[in-house]
Amino acid sequence: MTTPRPKDYRMPAEWAPHEATWIAWPHNAEDWPGKFQPIPWVYSEIVRHLSRVEDVNILVNDLPAEKRATQLLRRAGANMARLHFHHWATDRVWLRDSGPIFVKNTEGATAITNWKFNAWAKYDNWRRDDQIPQHVAKLYAMPEFRPEVNDHRLVLEGGSIDTNGAGVLLTTEECLLSEVQQRNPGVSREQLEAAFAEYLGIEKVLWMHRGCAGDDTHGHIDDVTRFVGENTILTAVEKNTADENHLPLAENLDRLKSARNLSGDTFDVRELPMPNPVIFDGQRLPASYANFYIANDLVLVPTFNDCHDRLALNIIAECFPEREVIGVHAVDLVWGLGTLHCMTQQEPA
């Protein structure tokens, strides 16, 4: 079996029950230049929340790193019984993009799709991160599939896609089809859609145009548009017509309003505000409430000391009435050009 399709594997929705969340402990100070000191504490707070509702697998570079992390996590009040450390060296900590993308079938079996990771076709240091999915597959003795097109191993980051768990996938043309930070030269839209069908069980792809301003990945979907239900989509909008996010996000909204589900019906499209621009050291950062993470009984939402924080939390809470919705201060975290969704990867139960 060379692909998951014959066994009806499909990528579950993020809100489906989790076995665990995977993260990597921050260690590369260059990812938060001049502002690294608070980051391990931000991670400790996030793990404290996650460990109330599910296990957390934490990648660390070595035993001293595990000991330092353990000290912080104990002081933060994390549930240590639910934390599991793995000594696998990483280049960066954005496991949404470098970690395994799990698929599951109707019989309950789970497998790993191991897409190539090349640091967003932008940085040179990615080879340790590219090994993470095969480490997880070996740990679990789980089937592992490596997507290819024309003997070319396909590059894909988890932050560039979002699914409703029922065969529909969201992505952006800016990320997957642009010649800037080009992931898969010579691979067409149709070939990518065929690969999503073959490896993730996707029957329909909804192509948005662009991501948000300041996005180092060149257009990840998880900063702008997310499924929050099988037929419900939350999409970021910018009301300020002078802001560089206004037009791209308005076009995404327009595309979503005319999109159809597998039954030919419209989606329930809801609008999510953007925070006011977050600028540090003269650089616009990819601050977005859409980078939330859905855990068991919990949704963690990045907040930015902004007047839109409360509105965004209320909108997301309306989408998840059965879950506790918690804001996590992310002004320091976003200086690393990612927040809560970027740092996490769910493992389905």
Score class of each variant (00 low, 15 high):
residue 324 E to W: 02
residue 181 Q to P: 02
residue 27 H to G: 15
residue 218 H to D: 11
residue 47 V to H: 05
residue 337 L to I: 11
residue 263 S to L: 08
residue 307 C to T: 15
residue 10 R to K: 11
residue 189 R to C: 10
residue 348 P to T: 02
residue 229 G to R: 07
residue 8 D to S: 12
residue 8 D to N: 14
residue 112 I to D: 01
residue 88 W to G: 11
residue 87 H to S: 12
residue 164 N to Y: 01
residue 322 E to T: 15
residue 91 D to V: 08
residue 154 L to E: 00
residue 171 T to H: 00
residue 299 V to G: 06
residue 1 M to I: 12
residue 188 S to N: 05
residue 330 A to T: 13
residue 224 V to H: 06
residue 228 V to K: 04
residue 138 K to G: 08
residue 38 P to V: 10
residue 150 N to S: 14
residue 170 L to G: 04
residue 156 L to F: 09
residue 313 L to C: 05
residue 192 L to S: 01
residue 261 N to M: 10
residue 281 D to L: 12
residue 140 Y to Q: 14
residue 71 Q to I: 04
residue 255 R to P: 14
residue 256 L to T: 08
residue 189 R to N: 04
residue 297 D to L: 06
residue 46 I to F: 03
residue 242 A to V: 12
residue 65 A to V: 10
residue 17 P to F: 00
residue 331 V to S: 12
residue 12 P to A: 01
residue 16 A to T: 14
residue 269 V to R: 07
residue 234 L to Q: 11
residue 263 S to H: 12
residue 134 Q to R: 11
residue 250 A to L: 12
residue 308 H to T: 15
residue 60 V to A: 05
residue 325 V to E: 00
residue 272 L to F: 00
residue 318 E to R: 10
residue 24 A to Y: 02
residue 43 Y to L: 01
residue 86 H to G: 09
residue 103 V to P: 03
residue 326 I to M: 12
residue 272 L to E: 15
residue 278 V to E: 13
residue 144 E to D: 11
residue 227 F to G: 12
residue 99 G to Y: 02
residue 222 D to P: 03
residue 280 F to W: 13
residue 12 P to R: 01
residue 198 E to D: 13
residue 11 M to L: 14
residue 107 E to W: 02
residue 257 K to T: 06
residue 265 D to Y: 04
residue 178 S to Q: 03
residue 134 Q to G: 06
residue 96 R to V: 07
residue 179 E to Y: 04
residue 150 N to D: 15
residue 73 L to I: 00
residue 193 E to H: 03
residue 133 P to T: 09
residue 244 E to Q: 12
residue 1 M to G: 08
residue 318 E to P: 00
residue 174 E to T: 06
residue 180 V to G: 11
residue 262 L to K: 09
residue 229 G to A: 13
residue 226 R to F: 05
residue 324 E to L: 10
residue 25 W to D: 08
residue 158 G to H: 01
residue 19 E to V: 00
residue 202 I to Y: 00
residue 60 V to Q: 07
residue 286 P to I: 04
residue 222 D to K: 01
residue 50 L to Q: 10
residue 236 A to M: 09
residue 311 L to Q: 15
residue 105 N to E: 01
residue 56 V to N: 13
residue 77 G to A: 06
residue 24 A to K: 03
residue 291 N to L: 05
residue 78 A to L: 02
residue 224 V to P: 02
residue 276 N to D: 15
residue 225 T to R: 00
residue 71 Q to E: 15
residue 165 G to N: 05
residue 305 N to V: 07
residue 49 H to Y: 14
residue 27 H to K: 09
residue 319 C to R: 02
residue 37 Q to R: 13
residue 118 N to F: 02
residue 279 I to R: 05
residue 126 W to C: 04
residue 270 R to P: 11
residue 295 A to P: 11
residue 248 P to G: 08
residue 232 T to N: 01
residue 347 E to W: 00
residue 194 A to L: 10
residue 3 T to K: 01
residue 145 F to M: 06
residue 119 A to V: 11
residue 215 D to T: 08
residue 330 A to C: 15
residue 230 E to H: 12
